[in-house]
């Protein structure tokens, strides 16, 4: 919480990188303090006046954002060492935790495009891998969906709040950055997807697979999703550090999903062994 003695200004340290493959560097800015600031408004202030603490005019810092109310997931970055959304990172709280300075870094598990902007395509590719959708017949009028109990809705709802921000992946010690540099300049989509498909899915995709496997319509294709969870880079890579659930801004029960996926794949393996 804020203390009565508010600073006139504070320092912001940003890890910057001009482009992929370029070296990164720290730049420091001094930002005048105002009430009700969050990290987005800090970045906006720097963008409007991009001058470092030692008086150099530099290019404005690049960052991603959209909704600014923590439902779109765009502005995810590492703030004071912890991955979170810039919009919900309030300056008063950050300065109370670490007086005088705020440190911003891009997420480390994804390739940097520029400054705080990273390429999170892999995150969406994981959703394709686990077939995170309901395979309904068509979009014609076929009446309502299956009836569901309140309990089923209450189990599904928290999982549907996942905004694909990537916090769970950044904090996961088992989720490693995929190096695409071996493909050189013109990496094709196929090459990139093949590389992604060999790497760890991550908590968000495992949770989505369980969401759809729990849905009455999704159940019909549950086996495909379980096969995907058991393929290379699947659920077995999880190391149970449980950081995912600790950093998830939506407090999604990711570790419960992971354990439920563990159970489902156990049963699926036994079934496959005896039924085929």
């Amino acid at each position: 919480m804020t203390t009565s003695g508010k600073p006139a200004s504070f320092e912001v340290r940003i890890l910057r990188q001009d482009a992929p493959g370029e070296p990164s560097r720290w730049e420091r800015f001094r930002v005048p303090y105002e009430t009700d600031m969050n990290v987005i408004s800090v970045l906006q202030k720097i963008a409007a006046n991009p001058r470092t603490i030692d008086g150099r005019d530099v290019a404005p810092v690049a960052w991603e954002s959209n909704c600014l109310e923590e439902v779109c997931g765009a502005c995810t970055m590492v703030i004071n060492g912890r991955v979170r959304q810039a919009c919900s990172a309030l300056v008063d709280q950050l300065l109370a935790d670490r007086p005088g300075e705020i440190e911003l870094r891009p997420m480390s598990k994804f390739p940097v495009y520029r400054d705080l902007v990273v390429d999170r395509q892999r995150l969406f590719r994981s959703l394709v891998r686990v077939r995170a959708w309901l395979p309904i017949d068509d979009y014609s009028d076929r009446g309502p969906g299956p009836r569901q109990s309140q309990a089923e809705q209450e189990q599904a709802y928290p999982l549907t709040e996942c905004m694909s921000c990537g916090c769970c992946l950044e904090a996961c010690p088992q989720f490693q950055k995929v190096d695409l540099s071996e493909y050189g300049e013109g990496t094709s989509d196929e090459q990139r997807n093949a590389a992604f498909d060999r790497s760890f899915l991550g908590a968000h995709a495992i949770s989505q697979a369980m969401l759809f496997n729990g849905h009455p319509i999704g159940k019909t294709s549950a086996a495909e999703r379980l096969d995907a969870l058991m393929a290379e880079g699947g659920i077995q890579v999880c190391g149970n550090a449980q950081n995912c659930v600790a950093v998830c801004p939506k407090e999604i029960p990711l570790t419960t999903s992971i354990a439920r996926a563990g159970r489902a794949t156990t049963i699926h393996t036994i079934k496959k062994f005896f039924d085929h």
């Binding site: 991603e64 959209n66 909704c67 109310e69 439902v71 779109c72 997931g73 765009a74 999170r120 969406f124 905004m163 694909s164």
Partner: peptide
């Protein structure tokens, strides 16, 4: 933006 981050989420 990636379409999942569109304003409709608000």
């Amino acid at each position: 933006t990636p379409v999942k981050r569109s304003h409709s989420v608000c």
